[in-house]
Amino acid sequence: MFEARLPQAAVLKKLVEALKELVTEGNFDVSPSGISLQAMDSSHVCLVTLQLNDDGFEHFRCDRNMSMGIHFGNLSKILKCAGNEDTITLKAEDNADQLTLMFESANQDRISDFDLKLMSIESEHLGIPDQDYSAEVKMPSAEYQRIVRDLTSMGDTVLVSATKEGIKFSTSGDIGTANITLRHNTTPEKEDEQTHIDLKEPVALTFALRYLNNFAKATPLTPQVKLSLTKDLPVVVEYKVGELGQVRFFLAPKIDD
């Protein structure tokens, strides 16, 4: 059987909210080392990967590997019935066709359980090589959210260029052009408010803003986001989920004809 217990439902609620519009369904692959997911959007332009490590759970048991096909919109409906502070337990028998979600309030005076019907989902897996990136930028996730939102009011695509001057986001559209540059900045006392630019070589890539905006739905998960860029490769936008693991969004760049 599979059983996983998290002390705060809020984490799972935020995770599902972050990915449900991008990927409508996907397989939760459970194994003794945790829960993972790899799902592409319908146009195969972006990919979401999720890794939740067994030791990040309050309790984790998985007797045999299972692939649980989940409709994220439906999972989201169920998770809306959980309080943020509820303890949440996920349970499934081996080869089950449903996933049980149990919510317990902090003082244990309210216990509810919901069964989610599982789906059979055929999904292609992509091999993502371990990569040394030309530029890795850590910045406040709220800053990332603001930049991609602001630029969306001007254009459809963004040129992201990392140089020793900083990371620059540029767009243009019918009403004009916009450039936003963030510099390496370790001045703020709080590490969460700092911007770290680790540059091996300058790199510039063009992306669709619509997807970068969608990734920002993960902002409530964590105060920092990491962007990894290499020429001719998808950008990786990574949000850490405390000690539990991380969610990564990969977006294919625009390519010249």
Partner: peptide
């Protein structure tokens, strides 16, 4: 004008 790349252009399908 640049075209939107698909993930299969960059990663191997397993």
């Amino acid at each position: 004008k640049a075209n939107q790349g698909r993930l299969e252009n960059f990663f191997t399908v397993l």
